[in-house]
Design a protein around this nucleic acid. Structure first.
Lengths: 209, 209
DNA sequence: GTCTATAATTAGATAGAC
DNA sequence: GTCTATCTAATTATAGAC
Protein backbone atom coordinates (compact mmCIF):
# COMPACT_ATOMS: atom_id res chain seq x y z
CA UNK A 1 0.00 0.00 0.00
CA UNK A 2 2.57 2.55 -1.00
CA UNK A 3 0.99 4.88 -3.58
CA UNK A 4 -0.42 3.50 -6.85
CA UNK A 5 -3.59 1.63 -5.98
CA UNK A 6 -6.31 3.96 -7.32
CA UNK A 7 -8.66 2.83 -10.09
CA UNK A 8 -7.68 5.64 -12.48
CA UNK A 9 -4.74 6.56 -14.70
CA UNK A 10 -2.33 7.93 -12.14
CA UNK A 11 -2.39 9.73 -8.84
CA UNK A 12 -5.37 10.00 -6.54
CA UNK A 13 -8.29 9.82 -8.90
CA UNK A 14 -10.90 10.90 -6.42
CA UNK A 15 -9.16 14.21 -5.78
CA UNK A 16 -8.55 14.76 -9.47
CA UNK A 17 -12.17 13.97 -10.19
CA UNK A 18 -13.41 16.28 -7.50
CA UNK A 19 -11.35 19.14 -8.90
CA UNK A 20 -12.61 18.41 -12.39
CA UNK A 21 -16.23 18.37 -11.27
CA UNK A 22 -15.82 21.60 -9.33
CA UNK A 23 -14.04 23.21 -12.29
CA UNK A 24 -16.86 22.28 -14.63
CA UNK A 25 -19.40 23.89 -12.37
CA UNK A 26 -17.46 27.06 -11.67
CA UNK A 27 -16.15 27.62 -15.19
CA UNK A 28 -19.64 27.19 -16.57
CA UNK A 29 -21.19 29.57 -14.08
CA UNK A 30 -18.64 32.35 -14.24
CA UNK A 31 -16.72 31.87 -17.48
CA UNK A 32 -12.99 31.35 -17.77
CA UNK A 33 -11.89 34.74 -16.50
CA UNK A 34 -14.53 34.99 -13.81
CA UNK A 35 -13.61 31.60 -12.36
CA UNK A 36 -11.00 31.64 -9.62
CA UNK A 37 -8.79 28.64 -9.14
CA UNK A 38 -9.02 29.21 -5.40
CA UNK A 39 -12.77 28.77 -5.53
CA UNK A 40 -12.46 25.65 -7.63
CA UNK A 41 -10.03 24.12 -5.16
CA UNK A 42 -12.23 25.12 -2.28
CA UNK A 43 -15.40 23.66 -3.80
CA UNK A 44 -13.49 20.47 -4.54
CA UNK A 45 -12.27 20.35 -0.97
CA UNK A 46 -8.74 20.23 -2.35
CA UNK A 47 -5.61 22.27 -1.92
CA UNK A 48 -4.85 25.03 -4.38
CA UNK A 49 -1.45 23.56 -5.20
CA UNK A 50 -3.09 20.38 -6.45
CA UNK A 51 -4.44 22.18 -9.48
CA UNK A 52 -0.93 22.66 -10.71
CA UNK A 53 -0.05 19.13 -9.71
CA UNK A 54 -2.90 17.58 -11.72
CA UNK A 55 -3.53 20.06 -14.51
CA UNK A 56 -0.56 22.44 -14.53
CA UNK A 57 -2.39 25.65 -15.50
CA UNK A 58 -5.86 27.16 -15.28
CA UNK A 59 -6.17 26.84 -19.03
CA UNK A 60 -5.34 23.13 -19.00
CA UNK A 61 -7.86 22.64 -16.24
CA UNK A 62 -10.45 24.41 -18.35
CA UNK A 63 -9.76 22.16 -21.31
CA UNK A 64 -9.98 19.07 -19.16
CA UNK A 65 -13.30 20.27 -17.75
CA UNK A 66 -14.69 20.93 -21.22
CA UNK A 67 -13.55 17.53 -22.44
CA UNK A 68 -15.36 16.04 -19.51
CA UNK A 69 -18.59 17.89 -20.32
CA UNK A 70 -18.56 16.62 -23.89
CA UNK A 71 -17.67 13.10 -22.78
CA UNK A 72 -20.86 13.07 -20.74
CA UNK A 73 -22.86 14.29 -23.72
CA UNK A 74 -21.30 11.75 -26.04
CA UNK A 75 -21.88 8.89 -23.65
CA UNK A 76 -25.51 9.95 -23.36
CA UNK A 77 -26.05 10.19 -27.08
CA UNK A 78 -23.94 7.55 -28.73
CA UNK A 79 -26.81 5.17 -29.38
CA UNK A 80 -29.33 7.79 -30.34
CA UNK A 81 -27.12 9.56 -32.84
CA UNK A 82 -26.14 6.41 -34.67
CA UNK A 83 -27.94 5.90 -38.05
CA UNK A 84 -30.34 3.42 -36.39
CA UNK A 85 -32.22 1.90 -39.30
CA UNK A 86 -34.22 -0.19 -36.87
CA UNK A 87 -36.76 2.33 -35.63
CA UNK A 88 -38.98 4.74 -37.47
CA UNK A 89 -36.87 7.80 -38.25
CA UNK A 90 -39.52 10.18 -37.04
CA UNK A 91 -39.68 8.46 -33.69
CA UNK A 92 -35.91 8.39 -33.48
CA UNK A 93 -35.70 12.11 -34.15
CA UNK A 94 -38.31 12.88 -31.56
CA UNK A 95 -36.48 10.76 -29.03
CA UNK A 96 -33.26 12.53 -29.84
CA UNK A 97 -34.84 15.90 -29.16
CA UNK A 98 -36.38 14.71 -25.91
CA UNK A 99 -33.14 13.27 -24.74
CA UNK A 100 -31.29 16.44 -25.59
CA UNK A 101 -33.75 18.53 -23.57
CA UNK A 102 -33.34 16.21 -20.60
CA UNK A 103 -29.59 16.32 -20.98
CA UNK A 104 -29.66 20.15 -20.88
CA UNK A 105 -31.76 20.00 -17.73
CA UNK A 106 -29.36 17.61 -16.04
CA UNK A 107 -26.13 19.18 -17.32
CA UNK A 108 -26.76 22.89 -17.76
CA UNK A 109 -22.99 23.38 -17.41
CA UNK A 110 -22.70 22.08 -20.92
CA UNK A 111 -24.83 24.79 -22.49
CA UNK A 112 -23.35 27.48 -20.25
CA UNK A 113 -19.81 26.58 -21.22
CA UNK A 114 -20.56 26.48 -24.92
CA UNK A 115 -22.60 29.66 -24.95
CA UNK A 116 -20.05 31.57 -22.97
CA UNK A 117 -17.01 30.88 -25.10
CA UNK A 118 -18.83 31.11 -28.43
CA UNK A 119 -19.59 34.79 -27.88
CA UNK A 120 -16.10 35.99 -28.71
CA UNK A 121 -13.25 34.99 -30.93
CA UNK A 122 -10.14 33.69 -29.22
CA UNK A 123 -7.99 30.62 -28.74
CA UNK A 124 -10.43 28.94 -26.37
CA UNK A 125 -13.37 29.42 -28.71
CA UNK A 126 -11.39 27.99 -31.60
CA UNK A 127 -10.25 25.02 -29.61
CA UNK A 128 -13.78 24.36 -28.40
CA UNK A 129 -15.38 24.68 -31.82
CA UNK A 130 -12.79 22.63 -33.69
CA UNK A 131 -12.60 19.88 -31.11
CA UNK A 132 -16.18 19.54 -29.95
CA UNK A 133 -18.88 21.81 -31.31
CA UNK A 134 -18.21 21.35 -35.00
CA UNK A 135 -18.21 17.54 -34.88
CA UNK A 136 -21.46 17.69 -32.95
CA UNK A 137 -22.89 20.11 -35.48
CA UNK A 138 -21.93 17.85 -38.39
CA UNK A 139 -23.60 14.91 -36.73
CA UNK A 140 -26.81 16.83 -36.18
CA UNK A 141 -26.57 18.23 -39.67
CA UNK A 142 -26.76 14.84 -41.33
CA UNK A 143 -29.77 13.90 -39.26
CA UNK A 144 -31.56 17.14 -39.96
CA UNK A 145 -30.89 17.09 -43.68
CA UNK A 146 -32.11 13.52 -43.91
CA UNK A 147 -35.26 14.36 -41.99
CA UNK A 148 -35.87 17.45 -44.07
CA UNK A 149 -35.45 15.52 -47.30
CA UNK A 150 -38.24 13.26 -46.12
CA UNK A 151 -40.41 16.21 -45.15
CA UNK A 152 -40.41 15.21 -41.50
CA UNK A 153 -39.31 18.63 -40.33
CA UNK A 154 -39.65 22.01 -42.02
CA UNK A 155 -37.03 22.87 -44.65
CA UNK A 156 -35.08 25.49 -42.77
CA UNK A 157 -31.37 26.32 -43.20
CA UNK A 158 -29.24 23.96 -41.14
CA UNK A 159 -27.50 26.78 -39.25
CA UNK A 160 -30.84 28.12 -38.12
CA UNK A 161 -32.04 24.66 -37.19
CA UNK A 162 -28.95 24.05 -35.08
CA UNK A 163 -29.14 27.28 -33.12
CA UNK A 164 -32.91 27.10 -32.75
CA UNK A 165 -32.56 23.58 -31.42
CA UNK A 166 -29.80 24.39 -28.95
CA UNK A 167 -31.38 27.67 -27.92
CA UNK A 168 -34.91 26.37 -27.58
CA UNK A 169 -33.86 23.24 -25.72
CA UNK A 170 -31.14 24.68 -23.53
CA UNK A 171 -31.77 28.27 -22.54
CA UNK A 172 -34.47 27.48 -20.01
CA UNK A 173 -31.95 25.39 -18.09
CA UNK A 174 -28.81 27.43 -18.57
CA UNK A 175 -30.78 30.39 -17.21
CA UNK A 176 -32.26 28.42 -14.32
CA UNK A 177 -31.38 30.96 -11.60
CA UNK A 178 -32.86 33.80 -13.64
CA UNK A 179 -35.95 31.73 -14.39
CA UNK A 180 -36.51 30.93 -10.78
CA UNK A 181 -36.28 34.53 -9.66
CA UNK A 182 -38.42 35.76 -12.52
CA UNK A 183 -41.21 33.22 -12.47
CA UNK A 184 -40.84 31.29 -9.23
CA UNK A 185 -40.56 28.14 -11.29
CA UNK A 186 -37.63 25.77 -10.86
CA UNK A 187 -37.05 24.59 -14.43
CA UNK A 188 -35.22 21.44 -13.35
CA UNK A 189 -38.38 20.09 -11.77
CA UNK A 190 -39.34 16.91 -13.60
CA UNK A 191 -42.75 18.04 -14.81
CA UNK A 192 -41.29 21.29 -16.13
CA UNK A 193 -38.55 19.43 -17.99
CA UNK A 194 -41.04 17.11 -19.63
CA UNK A 195 -43.40 19.92 -20.54
CA UNK A 196 -40.49 21.74 -22.11
CA UNK A 197 -39.44 18.66 -24.04
CA UNK A 198 -43.03 18.32 -25.32
CA UNK A 199 -42.98 21.95 -26.38
CA UNK A 200 -39.66 21.71 -28.23
CA UNK A 201 -40.68 18.52 -30.03
CA UNK A 202 -43.98 20.02 -31.01
CA UNK A 203 -42.44 23.17 -32.40
CA UNK A 204 -39.48 21.60 -34.14
CA UNK A 205 -41.40 18.73 -35.64
CA UNK A 206 -44.41 20.77 -36.60
CA UNK A 207 -47.07 18.73 -34.88
CA UNK A 208 -50.40 20.57 -35.03
CA UNK A 209 -52.21 18.78 -32.20
CA UNK B 1 -17.29 78.61 -24.20
CA UNK B 2 -16.14 77.65 -20.78
CA UNK B 3 -17.48 74.17 -20.04
CA UNK B 4 -21.21 73.45 -20.15
CA UNK B 5 -22.26 73.52 -23.78
CA UNK B 6 -22.84 69.87 -24.62
CA UNK B 7 -26.29 68.57 -25.60
CA UNK B 8 -26.45 66.09 -22.72
CA UNK B 9 -27.05 66.15 -18.99
CA UNK B 10 -23.65 67.20 -17.77
CA UNK B 11 -20.05 66.90 -18.78
CA UNK B 12 -18.81 65.94 -22.21
CA UNK B 13 -21.53 63.69 -23.50
CA UNK B 14 -19.59 62.33 -26.40
CA UNK B 15 -16.91 60.89 -24.15
CA UNK B 16 -19.48 59.55 -21.73
CA UNK B 17 -21.35 57.98 -24.61
CA UNK B 18 -18.22 56.45 -26.05
CA UNK B 19 -17.39 54.85 -22.74
CA UNK B 20 -20.91 53.54 -22.41
CA UNK B 21 -20.89 52.05 -25.89
CA UNK B 22 -17.50 50.44 -25.32
CA UNK B 23 -18.64 49.09 -21.95
CA UNK B 24 -21.73 47.54 -23.49
CA UNK B 25 -19.63 45.72 -26.05
CA UNK B 26 -16.94 44.52 -23.69
CA UNK B 27 -19.21 43.56 -20.81
CA UNK B 28 -21.40 41.58 -23.17
CA UNK B 29 -18.48 39.78 -24.76
CA UNK B 30 -16.56 38.91 -21.63
CA UNK B 31 -18.99 39.17 -18.75
CA UNK B 32 -18.62 41.46 -15.75
CA UNK B 33 -15.54 39.83 -14.25
CA UNK B 34 -13.86 39.17 -17.56
CA UNK B 35 -14.21 42.79 -18.66
CA UNK B 36 -11.31 45.07 -17.78
CA UNK B 37 -12.00 48.73 -17.21
CA UNK B 38 -8.69 49.47 -18.90
CA UNK B 39 -9.90 47.77 -22.07
CA UNK B 40 -13.19 49.62 -21.96
CA UNK B 41 -11.40 52.95 -21.65
CA UNK B 42 -9.04 52.01 -24.44
CA UNK B 43 -11.80 50.94 -26.82
CA UNK B 44 -13.64 54.17 -26.05
CA UNK B 45 -10.49 56.13 -26.77
CA UNK B 46 -10.85 57.62 -23.31
CA UNK B 47 -8.69 57.83 -20.26
CA UNK B 48 -9.06 55.25 -17.50
CA UNK B 49 -9.67 57.93 -14.89
CA UNK B 50 -12.77 59.08 -16.75
CA UNK B 51 -14.61 55.94 -15.79
CA UNK B 52 -14.52 57.02 -12.21
CA UNK B 53 -15.35 60.55 -13.21
CA UNK B 54 -18.49 59.57 -15.10
CA UNK B 55 -19.61 56.34 -13.46
CA UNK B 56 -17.65 56.05 -10.22
CA UNK B 57 -17.24 52.26 -10.12
CA UNK B 58 -17.08 49.34 -12.51
CA UNK B 59 -20.39 48.13 -11.16
CA UNK B 60 -22.12 51.45 -11.79
CA UNK B 61 -20.72 51.45 -15.28
CA UNK B 62 -22.13 47.98 -15.81
CA UNK B 63 -25.57 49.06 -14.67
CA UNK B 64 -25.49 52.10 -16.93
CA UNK B 65 -24.49 49.89 -19.86
CA UNK B 66 -27.31 47.43 -19.17
CA UNK B 67 -29.81 50.26 -18.86
CA UNK B 68 -28.64 51.48 -22.21
CA UNK B 69 -29.10 48.06 -23.82
CA UNK B 70 -32.67 47.83 -22.58
CA UNK B 71 -33.40 51.42 -23.59
CA UNK B 72 -32.51 50.47 -27.14
CA UNK B 73 -34.78 47.44 -26.98
CA UNK B 74 -37.65 49.43 -25.51
CA UNK B 75 -37.33 52.18 -28.09
CA UNK B 76 -37.40 49.54 -30.81
CA UNK B 77 -40.46 47.79 -29.45
CA UNK B 78 -42.66 50.39 -27.86
CA UNK B 79 -45.14 50.55 -30.71
CA UNK B 80 -45.21 46.84 -31.42
CA UNK B 81 -45.74 45.74 -27.85
CA UNK B 82 -48.67 48.07 -27.29
CA UNK B 83 -52.12 46.37 -27.38
CA UNK B 84 -52.64 47.62 -30.95
CA UNK B 85 -56.27 46.79 -31.66
CA UNK B 86 -55.85 48.22 -35.13
CA UNK B 87 -54.13 45.35 -36.90
CA UNK B 88 -54.88 41.66 -37.05
CA UNK B 89 -53.42 40.10 -33.93
CA UNK B 90 -51.83 37.29 -35.82
CA UNK B 91 -50.01 39.69 -38.11
CA UNK B 92 -48.97 41.80 -35.14
CA UNK B 93 -47.51 38.79 -33.39
CA UNK B 94 -45.62 37.72 -36.45
CA UNK B 95 -44.22 41.21 -36.86
CA UNK B 96 -43.19 41.23 -33.24
CA UNK B 97 -41.24 38.02 -33.68
CA UNK B 98 -39.57 39.25 -36.84
CA UNK B 99 -38.61 42.49 -35.24
CA UNK B 100 -37.19 40.70 -32.24
CA UNK B 101 -35.03 38.49 -34.46
CA UNK B 102 -33.72 41.54 -36.30
CA UNK B 103 -33.06 43.28 -33.02
CA UNK B 104 -31.00 40.31 -31.81
CA UNK B 105 -29.00 40.42 -35.02
CA UNK B 106 -28.30 44.11 -34.67
CA UNK B 107 -27.76 44.15 -30.91
CA UNK B 108 -26.31 40.80 -29.93
CA UNK B 109 -24.87 42.49 -26.85
CA UNK B 110 -28.36 42.45 -25.43
CA UNK B 111 -28.71 38.69 -25.52
CA UNK B 112 -25.13 38.14 -24.40
CA UNK B 113 -25.55 40.37 -21.38
CA UNK B 114 -28.81 38.77 -20.31
CA UNK B 115 -27.66 35.22 -20.87
CA UNK B 116 -24.42 35.75 -19.03
CA UNK B 117 -25.81 37.15 -15.80
CA UNK B 118 -28.83 34.87 -15.70
CA UNK B 119 -26.63 31.80 -15.29
CA UNK B 120 -25.86 32.41 -11.64
CA UNK B 121 -27.51 33.91 -8.64
CA UNK B 122 -26.06 37.16 -7.33
CA UNK B 123 -26.77 40.84 -6.87
CA UNK B 124 -26.29 41.68 -10.53
CA UNK B 125 -28.64 38.94 -11.68
CA UNK B 126 -31.28 40.09 -9.22
CA UNK B 127 -30.96 43.70 -10.25
CA UNK B 128 -31.16 42.77 -13.92
CA UNK B 129 -34.17 40.50 -13.53
CA UNK B 130 -36.15 42.81 -11.28
CA UNK B 131 -35.44 45.94 -13.26
CA UNK B 132 -35.53 44.71 -16.83
CA UNK B 133 -36.09 41.06 -17.61
CA UNK B 134 -39.19 40.49 -15.54
CA UNK B 135 -41.09 43.50 -16.90
CA UNK B 136 -40.21 42.34 -20.39
CA UNK B 137 -41.36 38.84 -19.54
CA UNK B 138 -44.68 40.09 -18.20
CA UNK B 139 -45.27 42.08 -21.35
CA UNK B 140 -44.58 39.07 -23.55
CA UNK B 141 -46.65 36.91 -21.25
CA UNK B 142 -49.83 38.86 -21.80
CA UNK B 143 -49.35 38.73 -25.54
CA UNK B 144 -48.64 35.03 -25.57
CA UNK B 145 -51.55 34.13 -23.34
CA UNK B 146 -53.90 36.16 -25.45
CA UNK B 147 -52.62 34.54 -28.63
CA UNK B 148 -52.86 31.09 -27.08
CA UNK B 149 -56.41 31.69 -25.93
CA UNK B 150 -57.29 32.39 -29.53
CA UNK B 151 -55.47 29.30 -30.74
CA UNK B 152 -53.00 31.33 -32.76
CA UNK B 153 -49.99 29.67 -31.22
CA UNK B 154 -49.68 26.28 -29.53
CA UNK B 155 -50.75 26.08 -25.90
CA UNK B 156 -47.38 25.73 -24.26
CA UNK B 157 -46.39 26.88 -20.75
CA UNK B 158 -45.43 30.55 -20.79
CA UNK B 159 -42.01 29.92 -19.27
CA UNK B 160 -41.17 27.52 -22.05
CA UNK B 161 -42.52 29.90 -24.64
CA UNK B 162 -40.39 32.72 -23.31
CA UNK B 163 -37.12 30.79 -23.26
CA UNK B 164 -37.82 29.09 -26.56
CA UNK B 165 -38.51 32.46 -28.11
CA UNK B 166 -35.39 34.14 -26.73
CA UNK B 167 -33.21 31.11 -27.37
CA UNK B 168 -34.45 30.39 -30.85
CA UNK B 169 -34.34 34.01 -31.93
CA UNK B 170 -31.14 35.08 -30.22
CA UNK B 171 -28.60 32.31 -29.95
CA UNK B 172 -27.59 32.38 -33.60
CA UNK B 173 -26.51 35.99 -33.15
CA UNK B 174 -25.10 35.90 -29.66
CA UNK B 175 -22.89 33.03 -30.88
CA UNK B 176 -21.92 34.78 -34.09
CA UNK B 177 -18.16 34.21 -33.74
CA UNK B 178 -18.68 30.52 -33.03
CA UNK B 179 -21.12 30.24 -35.92
CA UNK B 180 -18.73 31.83 -38.34
CA UNK B 181 -15.87 29.54 -37.41
CA UNK B 182 -18.06 26.47 -37.40
CA UNK B 183 -20.02 27.00 -40.60
CA UNK B 184 -18.30 29.80 -42.47
CA UNK B 185 -21.60 31.69 -42.37
CA UNK B 186 -21.78 35.21 -41.00
CA UNK B 187 -25.17 35.20 -39.28
CA UNK B 188 -25.50 38.99 -39.38
CA UNK B 189 -25.70 38.93 -43.16
CA UNK B 190 -29.09 40.26 -44.19
CA UNK B 191 -30.29 37.17 -46.03
CA UNK B 192 -29.31 34.94 -43.10
CA UNK B 193 -31.14 37.18 -40.65
CA UNK B 194 -34.31 37.11 -42.73
CA UNK B 195 -34.14 33.37 -43.25
CA UNK B 196 -33.76 32.95 -39.52
CA UNK B 197 -36.72 35.23 -38.85
CA UNK B 198 -38.80 33.16 -41.29
CA UNK B 199 -37.75 30.00 -39.50
CA UNK B 200 -38.59 31.28 -36.04
CA UNK B 201 -41.98 32.61 -37.13
CA UNK B 202 -42.79 29.36 -38.85
CA UNK B 203 -41.89 27.25 -35.86
CA UNK B 204 -43.43 29.42 -33.19
CA UNK B 205 -46.61 30.14 -35.05
CA UNK B 206 -47.05 26.63 -36.31
CA UNK B 207 -47.36 27.39 -40.00
CA UNK B 208 -47.28 24.10 -41.94
CA UNK B 209 -46.32 25.48 -45.37
C1' DG C 1 0.11 13.39 -3.11
C1' DT C 2 -0.84 17.13 -0.12
C1' DC C 3 0.21 21.27 2.09
C1' DT C 4 2.05 26.30 3.32
C1' DA C 5 4.02 30.32 1.92
C1' DT C 6 5.34 33.53 -1.42
C1' DA C 7 6.64 35.55 -5.85
C1' DA C 8 5.01 38.04 -9.92
C1' DT C 9 1.42 40.06 -12.14
C1' DT C 10 -2.58 42.44 -12.80
C1' DA C 11 -6.90 44.70 -11.71
C1' DG C 12 -9.90 48.40 -9.80
C1' DA C 13 -9.63 52.42 -7.38
C1' DT C 14 -7.73 56.91 -6.45
C1' DA C 15 -4.91 61.30 -5.82
C1' DG C 16 -3.85 65.21 -7.80
C1' DA C 17 -1.64 68.09 -11.74
C1' DC C 18 -3.29 70.59 -15.63
C1' DG D 1 -13.01 67.30 -18.19
C1' DT D 2 -8.80 64.91 -19.06
C1' DC D 3 -4.48 62.99 -17.93
C1' DT D 4 -0.33 60.52 -15.35
C1' DA D 5 1.17 57.99 -11.70
C1' DT D 6 0.44 55.17 -7.89
C1' DC D 7 -1.90 52.47 -4.12
C1' DT D 8 -3.96 48.29 -2.63
C1' DA D 9 -5.92 43.99 -3.07
C1' DA D 10 -6.55 39.90 -5.38
C1' DT D 11 -5.03 36.34 -8.57
C1' DT D 12 -2.25 32.78 -10.92
C1' DA D 13 1.80 30.50 -10.70
C1' DT D 14 5.46 28.33 -8.13
C1' DA D 15 9.01 26.73 -4.72
C1' DG D 16 9.69 23.61 -1.51
C1' DA D 17 8.56 21.21 3.21
C1' DC D 18 6.32 17.04 4.65
Amino acid sequence: MSTAETPDTAGNASTREKILAAALQIFSERGFEGARTRDIAERAGANLGLIKYYFDTKEQLWKAAVDRAFEILTRDFQELMAPSSEVDERVALEQMIRRFVRFCAESPEFIRLMNDEGKRDGPRMRWLVDRHVKPMYELVRRRVESAQAKGMIPAIPVVSTHYIMVGAAGLLFSQAPECERMTGIDPTEKSTVEAHADAVVRLLMGDAT
